[in-house]
Amino acid sequence: MSHLLKHTADVEIEVSGRTLRELFTNSLDAMCDILKEGGCKTISHYDCSMQVVVSADDCTSLLIDFLSEVLSLSNIQKSLFCSVYFSELTENKVEAQLYGIWFDQFDREIKGVTYHEARVKKNDQNNWETHIIFDI
C-alpha cells in the first residue's frame, strides 16, 4: 500500500507492506505510477525482462538503491517495470527479475530516488513501512 504526502517541490510517498517483499513491490508499483499513472494497470504482456542485484549496508539503503537501479533501467530501456520476482531478498541484498513494457513517453521524469527521510522500519502493526521522496 502507498499514498502521496505533501511535499513542496517533489513527490513524497508513504509506503508499507506486511513483508519486506511486499514493501519492495509496493514501492516499485508506486514509482511506476509516478512515471506513468495507471501505466501498469492494463497490460496484457511483457516486452522485456532484466535482472537486478543490489547490496547495501542496511535495509533503507537497499530499498532506495534498488529503486534507483530500476529507475536507471527504466530510462535506458524506455520501459515500465510493472512486475518483479525476488529470487533473494534480505535486509542487505536483493536479487530480482524485472518484467517490463516499453513506453515511448512517461508522464513524469524522476531525477532521483532520495534517501531523505527514508527509514525502513516495522510499525506498531508489525508491518514494514517507510517514506520515500522522489526528486521530480
Partner: peptide
C-alpha cells in the same frame, strides 16, 4: 541524474572512512 545517484551512494559508504557524520543522508 545518474552521476548524482552513483556518487551519493558511494559517499554514504565513504563518509565513515573520513569520520564524517551528517544529520541527513542526502547531505552525504
Amino acid at each position: 541524474h545518474q552521476v548524482a545517484t552513483d556518487y551519493i551512494r558511494l559517499m554514504m559508504t565513504a563518509m565513515a572512512k573520513y569520520d564524517v557524520k551528517m544529520p541527513d543522508r542526502e547531505l552525504a
